[in-house]
Design a protein around this nucleic acid. Sequence first.
RNA 1: GCGCCCAUAGCUCAAUUGGAUAGAGCAACGCCCUUCUAAGGCGUAGGUUCCAGGUUCGAGCCCUGGUGGGCGUACCA
Length: 586
Amino acid sequence: MKQHITGLIQAALDTLVQNGDLPADINPSIMIENTRDKSHGDLASNIALTLAKAARRNPRDIATLITQALPASEQLNKTEIAGPGFINFFITSASATKVVEDILEQGHQFGRVICAKPEKIQVEFVSANPTGPLHVGHGRGAAYGATVADILEATGADISREYYVNDAGRQMNILAVSVWLRYLEKHGEDVTFPTNAYKGQYVHDIATQAKEQHGDKFLVSSAQVFTDLPLDEPQGGDKEKYIDAIIERASILLGEATFDQLFLVGLDAIRDDIRDDLSGFGINYQEWFSERSLTSTGDVEQALARLDNSGHLYVEEGNTWFKSTAFGDDKDRVVKRANGATTYFASDIAYHMNKFDRGFDKVINIWGADHHGYITRVKAAIQALGYEPDRLVVKLVQFAILYRGTERVQMSTRSGSFVTLRELREEVGKDACRFFYVTRKADNHMDFDLELAKSQSKDNPVYYIQYAHARICSVIDKLETSEWSLDLQAGLTALGESTDDAEKLILNQLAKYPETLQNAAANYEPHLIANYLKDLAGEFHTYYNSNKMLIEDAQLRNSRITLSYAVKQVIANGLTLLGVDAPQRM
RNA sequence: GCGCCCAUAGCUCAAUUGGAUAGAGCAACGCCCUUCUAAGGCGUAGGUUCCAGGUUCGAGCCCUGGUGGGCGUACCA
């Protein structure tokens, strides 16, 4: 419809230019918008306003010229000039009904786009350190990333979802010795647990698992572990030095290979748990990418060599620095320490190089808002490696604060008492979680009310949308067991002749679905779909409450149920994109 | 100090990317209802879009300067 009107306006402008009513160099870009106020028609164009300056004429005069030159169209009832010079278009109800026909034909495909030459896009999200279960803080990134990926896929991209597993580095070693000490306890050794070790219940669980799978393979006496160590914090020492000393001790007592085995017990257990957790959240990845693998494949060294060859590295006091200030960073960054160890940033440079080398046209990283300071240096690195920096898109997700009614839910990652994502999911359900997390713009802080998410009332948008879907399913079920049957063709014809305002409103909303999806994809804004569905469900409930569906009058019955059928389809399509089920009954 | 993000109705948030009279839902108030799915429906009221300038036909949105809040400013991961 918008294209149709754009064509009409273009034709009108061509005529006016030919007749000399408008200068030839106006270079118009024709925008058609949905009106907010229905007294302004269904669609509107601001073309006259944008041309006013170039044409040196009053916008209302231009609008008059355009409407006079506008070719006739069977799809329009009338056009009107309003306000400062808007041209409003009123669509006939027959052509407004066209969208229902499209929905019936295309089914779950409606709104989706298939691209002949799809853009290859990678979406990396969550990527939490595998040192413990996911907590609620990861939930928003998970829901947002998954939905963005699905939306991009729906609009024609070739998507790969990836989790970057930070399985290298000190934090993972701390996890390994945490498991180890619990394991020793389970063998009856007397252990004083370090201040800085991981204390959650899951560490006990993994230790038990290690004992079951590996017997006493990692067993040493506690005397061997704790003799000649520096002091821990409670004794007036440094907890960081203390835990590092234990890591070193473990490595010596067990030997590198055995320590690594222990390390992998912890890593595998937690990664599997995270994978399972996310799967229950409706999220499945194409790739779990190991940070460790970057070292073993030589990617890190290769990335640094590439930077060095292009003159972006220098050595100072034994440390190797990347000259990121050349690309707008505040300061240069160390990539290799004097002791030869590469930094986390070096791995990240290699990781991004690896991503582009895998042939992705675009790479999207979903990061927590606390990582914003990191964007500049990563962009600097990929630029230095010779990639166009715009091919990396970083979307930051602000924190969500949990409330139970009006009371804030405290969470702390210390002492293992945090609220896990799994607990949240079990309490409020997958659907409400997924929906609530994406219902706000990602760059806004959000409040997540557990009570509201669980409530079964109109106040709860997820419930309200699913309820609309279930209601329609129920009507259709009832219809099928009645003496009537669903005649969609008759319904379409009847709808085309209808002048009912509520129906018009719903038709209008249905027609907006494809562009809402496009918009959501183009801007990485899934909340547009969530809001869209809320509106559609609201309009439908209103309609449903004032119009009986299962009635004698065949024309009304067919048109109402046909319209409802289309609403059901679009709700299902939208909810699917958000990772929310569309239930047949509730 | 510097950098990024945010500020819209009492509360939680929208606003088609610069369009027309800034919209929803809670909460408040006033009516109605007990149903094809029931956990409701209809309506009223509520605004200096943080402040001050600027850009233009037009600004919640863009620019400048403030105010307030969140986050970040590692050779950690």
